[in-house]
Design a protein around this nucleic acid. Structure first.
Lengths: 233, 233
DNA sequence: ATTTGATATTTGATGCAACAAATTTGTTGC
DNA sequence: GCAACAAATTTGTTGCATCAAATATCAAAT
């Protein structure tokens, strides 16, 4: 890895294919990723309290990285303060779901629209592969894998829009409803409404029909909303 | 203050007028607010490095609150990592401005649309007051005050939508372009293009015409974009 | 039983020292 | 001048002790 950096053929830094100078892999970063994934997977029940020391002990790190992770997730809305010294996994209220859905509709529609203009055949192939993975997971009753593949499907589209800030904002919205998505099993697994929306999105991307892709994504979000709404209302 | 809490007439907690359990005023919170305001005011030149110890010393706190503030602003995109140990105020590139503007258009349009349905006469009065403050500030050549009143004007509308998560997301977008807005002086002060858009927004709110308000806000954003684009392109 | 109030425990915030890693600086060579 | 390399400095990270404040616990009273 990165052996090409010393390749004499490389003339200037401007020619380098990618320079995503992201955050380094610190303990705080790992704690954040680990805690976030646990939240999205629904490992914590809504309203459960999280303390710095408890997280630190569970992750076998000191309080500093644990505190970093918690504070960062609070900033993203994945955790909330229920009191001055009380951090909980926020229950998904109807009001929160409505608001997040309204934002998702405009943000993901925007990403889908722009993605339609930037789509490549390779990406379409990968989308089809991901969709087959979703189908396989549903067939096998592996709901967790289906959710993961579903997320990968959506974000592969959004990343195609080449708008990293937009993608990050959408991701923060997904984290807020992720835990509740896990509660939907096995309803989601049996209904499979999302499949047709995904196929429609792929068809729209293939024909570079931005409006069609946008409509498919919006319908997918609305279909998901209806299921979630029954659980929080 | 709060003497009513012991008032025997108060039957239940549900009758209490306000319980906005927000974050407490910790040093980290103050450091965050102080640093963010400094960034928005354009006190730092684009690309300027920020170190934990420098911020800590400037704010006369230890490294922990300073680090909290910096990390939080990185999470919001107000600061970025230019290297593993290098945090800078991000220069507003054309690509970033385009992306932020595209997101602002859909997010602030959404907020404006919903605000039109929730608007009250009192809020309209406050908007008119804010607009007169903007005009006064421009007359007096107080560009900083005009910017502040302009922000208050927009966010009073957005808060009317009663979508706190949406408002927070919009706020994070404003922080990213805030520094560059200050560089626009005195162009903004002389042109006054925003005034007509604001009047149009007020008129739309008064007649509860959601589409009209939305169009006015969108035009305001686009007008601002054109000015900023000349500075970053 | 439920609520109130006092007590005890837990908790986040803060400061700071130590360390590893990155950045800066200085130097040498061309 | 300028690039490459090495030394010196700076810097973020991490762990932890301490403290004030918040939360939890429990007893007493209504």
């Amino acid at each position: 890895m990165f052996s090409d950096l010393t390749d004499p053929i490389l003339k200037s830094a401007a020619e380098m294919p990618l320079v995503p100078i992201d955050r380094q892999t610190s303990l705080g970063e790992l704690a954040y990723a680990s805690l976030k994934e646990a939240i999205v997977r629904g490992e914590f029940s809504a309203g459960q309290k999280l303390t710095v020391r408890a997280v630190a002990q569970a992750l076998e790190v000191s309080t500093t990285p644990a505190r970093d992770a918690i504070m960062r997730l609070i900033g993203e809305g994945a955790l909330v303060n229920a009191g001055p010294k009380t951090v909980i996994v926020p229950p998904l209220t109807k009001a929160a779901l409505d608001e997040v859905t309204a934002i998702r509709l405009v943000l993901e529609a925007l990403a889908a629209k722009i993605a339609a203009a930037n789509i490549s055949p390779e990406t379409i192939d990968r989308l089809k592969t991901l969709q087959s993975q979703i189908n396989s997971a549903l067939d096998a009753g592996n709901y967790s894998a289906a959710l993961k593949a579903n997320k990968a499907f959506h974000f592969l589209i959004y990343q195609t829009a080449n708008m990293p800030r937009l993608t990050a904002m959408i991701e923060s919205l997904w984290v807020r409803i992720g835990p509740s998505l896990n509660d939907l099993y096995p309803e989601f697994a049996t209904s499979r409404v999302g499949v047709s929306n995904h196929m429609e999105a792929i068809a729209g991307l293939e024909s570079r029909d931005a409006a069609r892709v946008q409509a498919a994504i919006e319908k997918d979000i609305r279909d998901g909303y209806r299921r979630l709404a029954t659980r929080v209302g």
